[in-house]
Design a protein around this nucleic acid. Sequence first.
RNA 1: GGGCGAGUGGCGGAAUUGGCAGACGCGCUGGCUUCAGGUGCCAGUGAGGGAAACCUCGUGGGGGUUCAAGUCCCCCCUCGCCCACCA
Length: 971
Amino acid sequence: MSADADTHAGSSDTSSTDTPAHRYTAALAQDIELRWQDHWDEAGTFETPNPAGPLGDPDAAAARGEKLFVQDMFPYPSGSGLHVGHPLGYIGTDVYSRFKRMTGHNVLYTMGFDSFGLPAEQYAVQTGTHPAVTTDANIATYRRQLRRLGLSHDPRRSIATTDPAYYRWTQWIFSQIFNAWFDQEAPNDTGTLGRARPIAELVEQFESGERATPGGTPWADLPACDREQILAGYRLAYVSDAPVNWCPGLGTVVANEEVTAEGRSDRGNFPVFKRNMRQWMMRITAYCDRLIDDLDRLDWTDAIKTMQRNWIGRSHGARVHFASAAGDITVFTTRPDTLFGASFMVLAPEHPFVAELTTAEQSDAVAAYRSAAEAKKDVDRQDETREKTGVFTGSFATNPINGEQIPIWIADYVLMGYGTGAIMAVPCGDERDFEFATKFGLPIPAIQQPPDNWFAARGIEPSLDTSTWPTAFVGDAPYVNSANDTLDLNGVDNKAGGIAATNTWLESQGAGEATINYKLRDWLFSRQRYWGEPFPIVWDEAGNPHTVPDDMLPVELPETDQFSPRTFDPDDAASNPESPLDRLDDWITVELDLGDGPKSYRRDSNVMPQWAGSCWYQLRYIDPTNENRFVDPENEAYWMGPRTDIRDDHPGGIDLYVGGVEHAVLHLLYARFWQKVLFDLGHVSAVEPYARLFNQGYIMADAFTDSRGVYVEATQVEERDGSWFLGDEPVNREYGKMGKSLKNAVSPDEMYDAYGADTLRLHEMAMGPLDASRPWETRDVVGMYRFLQRLWRNLVDEDTGECTVVDTPADDDTRKLLHRTIDTVRTEMDALRFNTAIAKLIELNNAVTKLAGTPREVAEPMVIMLSPLVPHLAEELWVKLGRSDESDGSSGTITYVEFPVADPALLVDDTVELPIQINGKVRSHVDVATDASKGDIEAAALANDKVVEALAGGSAKKVIVVPGRMVNVVV
RNA sequence: GGGCGAGUGGCGGAAUUGGCAGACGCGCUGGCUUCAGGUGCCAGUGAGGGAAACCUCGUGGGGGUUCAAGUCCCCCCUCGCCCACCA
């Protein structure tokens, strides 16, 4: 304790104008941080013991406590490095992991890299640098920047999806999926029907005759290619002709999800065209029901669950068959009860029946319309502001419910990719159909009696003459004109009843059946690129696929400098995709013995999409060095197994998964699908990968555009008189997610130089709730810097660097404040509410600042509580407090020191100050005993001067007393 | 158009089950330290009125329920995200 300080406040050294030698400055912070980061690495501080295997130490794992698996969505290592927006979630998971280590948990926390992907490939195409070189350099940059933040990852467990030792197992999982089928009849873990089984079990069923082959021919009599064709109809990974989005500018095919609203590629912004191509598909649609139903078992926000449900898009309805000259036209409808009102049909222009249905006199019009539709992008066809267009085919279909002949039209607002590519039009009850019928003069039979107020609201007389209606009637109302000889809906006024009755009738007549439709399509799983996982598939001369034997994995990407896909003029719609691997003759042809002697095969030249590696990385974190299996079962069960102590139907999975909401549907759905397949095949114990999901917000920042609308470097923009300028040129201010594209990124390196990593960490956690997006203001960072300086000054003499903590006990008020702080901080950290935890710690420190000396009794728990947030500074202070060398299990680090526990006796005061309200407004306060009775509180309130004055001698109408909260006197 | 979410000081944000609106931080104002600037420290800071004690208003707008509403209900406005002719 320095002699010149009466209080900590205002005790700065007056003998020098220079900064004191031991002030907590950015330079000192940097010194402390780099030193501790080296120490942690050397000591293996954050290495997490497994229960078994190469990283196994069962005793150590047990000693750490209950398991906890925390994971970030891993980054794509881009060439531009990190900005301060990237690590928001990482800091959050690090603080949480560190907190949990101190409260008796064995925490698995590490980081990997999603390193396959288009940017490295495009960069390679531009510069000639191999993607592997770029990727390794970028990963090295990311590792350095993340390490500088002090994240407590287990460095032994880091993975990169581009590492052959990793993608060997991505390929193995693909083989598992390829060699599996979905048995609709087999019970799954929830007792409903439908689960994956090895394809060999299907073959057995065919061989034994338990299951008939589709054509009825005995399995043994079928040639190999026919067998394979049959199996392809069952496999969970299969090749199929699929309409794909061909992007000549990228020289590759992109997924629907990667096409922007403008019909251009997500990356590169090139035009995208429709093409039919043989592609690998994943039968994710087999899992639609389980993917929806199991959402109920997950601790995810309702917003994300709703988005997944909407994406899968399960709707109950019926398939209805309409007889036509070309055969039965099948439609899907959610409203079979409106079938009596179906007065025409509309097919997608691409529908296979169109050619046969088109009559001679309509053929020119239909041909013209079809070619016009073909040239249109899906996005244009879906523009709802566009006027309806369509052409009559000249043919009619039979409405099965009343035998009427209804005209068949084609129109581009019906899409081949959804449902059956054909709809029945019920113009009186559907706005789009009403519009179409009105425009083309088609009949609009009324089948419901709208209520009088519906007509009144539209200023027309009630009538069933639909020509007087301005719009369709969409709602519940009694049916009219809805009866045939065997079905009568007239007078029924509820939709559910109408649907049920109609479905029963349809099934009895063989005219249709109740069914469930999904919006989700099978997952297009191949890309014509170089920088991705090769498929572990070879093709024989007859054109049958075979998996490469597991012991020959990985199928490594061939070394080549021909990694460019062949690109074309971005607008060249006639060009065709060509995979880079196709050109490598030495690699593409291979001689193998697959059990029937050496034969020549052709390798599959596709690569997997970037999603593949991220579908299962959590499993590899568990057992990253295992060369015999993708993950050891004992370790998997330990880290991922169901937690029935949390809920009875807990699906297993990691305990906390943190990432951005942009992955709400794609990544999260694909990863859930793979997990379920692996579960069904008996490879893992968890049926879901991520038991709890938390979506962190984004860091936003101002961005600026010049007169051409091009983003300019935000750091160079100046504000003058409320306007913004780049040099002398005025620019427009916008606002958006921090990043390279908006040119508004702030590098963490700048923050390290100005304040240090601990200040940056603390600031990002203090800015607001972790799940909210918030704007970045560099000038705000100084607040947390000052806080850490005050904290340091409260414990350390700025001139000598000596610890100034006193061993005298804390006074009662300080002790109570300490324990209330402990109580709150524990609760808030557990709930990931770091911003409020930090506020409480600042209050405690501010109170300590006013004391004549900081009692050790307060200093030690305060440092421990801060250590998850500012780990380097806390380690340093722990040493200064003389605690780090003790042989009490802390072993030279604060990391595993027990988090303070509040003394419940200190959380309650003897007296409490209650607000006194008069007519609901606070007018005074009164001190009462904490355990005072309602009567005592009321008496105390009524004796209060303000209340006496307000009552003016009269009596209160009513007195409401909420013990411990407030008193309200109604006058 | 549909779905989900959000509107609180100059700014970021606090506020158990309805119970003292604005914790904590930034910024700003004044002061101390300093030759000065910066750093650091102390005090003040929702708006309006008042010398003060205090008073009035105040959580996007308008209604409502209640002793009591940022919080619950109804209508409207604005913004963000996702999906969009989904049959």
